[in-house]
């Protein structure tokens, strides 16, 4: 029987070898370009423009210094943090209650709401920035962190809702019912029982919202002029910025998200995968 082939030690060893090579290749494929970026960001500007690239890189913080002191970069970084932070707060503040409602209740309109939330992902959301420019000018929101945060929240909200919904679903409702029989009001049960269990997952989706905003390019470039975010800044200076600036900027874009996502990786896999059904 063919099934016996897996028991054959020779074939098993070859199979393991193939898998091992595949794993190493896949990892290198992802990590090598990042390595190049790190090297570029941590080399002197001369080395960045120089050719050929040395096999063993010389580490040097000049590029980083150049980047940090370049005009407009510091404020751009601050703006990115501000917008991402606002997005995070808005996405969770609006999304978590909706997620809870979807997880715990059955009510007329539930599937319609769910459908609308899913449908929003069928639309290229950054395009929203276009009509909003006019509206923002009228309401004084143009070129503000809050204005951009609203667009980014639209981007992050559907995810936030679906992730928190599956998060709350994973906390058995019996726990809340037990709390109700032991003297809790609905809010009390939420505070004492659900929240402590949900905090890690909510933190993960908050980070996700932050990263979504941090990385977004199109809307940021369209909506911010004086108060540009890092992405807008880098995009609009592509023609004129020297290479060291580009690479250090890219590193600045990448590093925080790598750290954040590593910190919450446990929850993101289970939540994202389920949320995408």
């Amino acid at each position: 029987m063919k099934a016996m082939s897996l028991r054959n030690p020779v074939i098993r060893r070859n199979g393991n070898f193939l898998i091992g090579t595949a794993v190493v290749t896949a990892c290198l494929w992802v990590l090598v370009p990042l390595y190049f970026l790190a090297v570029n960001a941590l080399s002197s500007p001369k080395a960045v423009i120089g050719f050929p690239k040395p096999a063993v890189p010389q580490f040097n913080l000049e590029s980083v210094h150049f980047f940090a002191t370049y005009e407009g970069v510091a404020t751009a970084l601050l703006n990115s943090v501000l917008v991402a932070g606002l997005t995070m707060v808005l996405a969770i503040g609006l999304g978590a209650p909706a997620g809870y409602a979807l997880a715990r209740f059955d009510f007329p309109g539930k599937s319609a709401f769910r459908l609308v939330v899913l449908m929003t992902r069928a639309f290229p959301l950054p395009l929203l920035a276009l009509p909003l420019t006019v509206l923002y000018i009228r309401t004084g929101l143009d070129d503000t962190a809050l204005g951009l945060a609203f667009v980014h929240t639209t981007l992050a909200l559907p995810f936030s809702i679906l992730i928190t919904a599956s998060l709350f679903l994973s906390i058995p409702v019996e726990l809340e019912e037990a709390a109700w029989t032991l003297g809790c009001t609905r809010i009390g049960a939420f505070r004492h029982i659900v929240l402590p269990l949900a905090v890690p997952g909510i933190a993960a989706s908050a980070v996700f919202a932050f990263v979504t905003s941090w990385n977004e390019v199109f809307a940021a470039a369209v909506l911010t002029v004086q108060h540009r975010t890092l992405t807008a800044f880098l995009l609009q200076s592509l023609d004129v910025s020297p290479l060291p600036l580009k690479f250090a900027g890219a590193a600045a874009l990448v590093l925080p998200t790598l750290i954040f996502l590593f910190a919450v990786r446990k929850y993101l896999f289970s939540l994202w995968g389920i949320a995408n059904r």
Binding site: P172, E174, E177, A178, A179, T181, I193, L197
Partner: peptide, 13 residues
Amino acid sequence: IAMVFQNYAVFPH
């Protein structure tokens, strides 16, 4: 009242 649930509902945290 007080209630004992089928799956116990013991608070895990």
